[in-house]
Amino acid sequence: MSRGFILTTDSVIAVILSVFIAVSVLTISSHFVYPRDDPHALREAGRDLLASLEASGELEEAAISGNNEALLRALNSLPPTYCASIQIFKNTAPVMQVNRTGCTCENELVIYQRTFLAISDGSQREMFARFGGCFT
């Protein structure tokens, strides 16, 4: 009888442990976000996008000429699950907004802003660009 009691106790403990482990694994895995929808990756993409647009002079060109084609092309080259927009401000006044073709963010998940200078005709304008992004 004592062997039967020990086996029963052993199986009860095994069931309890199995349930505990299964619940723990499910809890942990539910917090995992696939890299495809990783907000950090989206923000890094926004940061790199604005930095490269500033370095190439395309932000400045857009601010001076009002032509947003280069910014739109850059936004449309982002991964397909990214939805994003770029706004350009002169001091604090918005002067341009470009949205990725075919999408608009209801709630922006990430925001990144950086300053740049637009120099033309012997004068300089202090501007900043704002990247806002979410997932489609």
Partner: peptide, 21 residues
């Protein structure tokens, strides 16, 4: 698994991080 998850920063953004720069 738990340590790995924590080291990955739980893959989400805190309110402070959502800010700008």
């Amino acid at each position: 698994a738990r340590i790995y998850l924590l080291s990955e920063g739980s893959m989400g953004l805190s309110k402070a991080e959502k800010g700008s720069v």
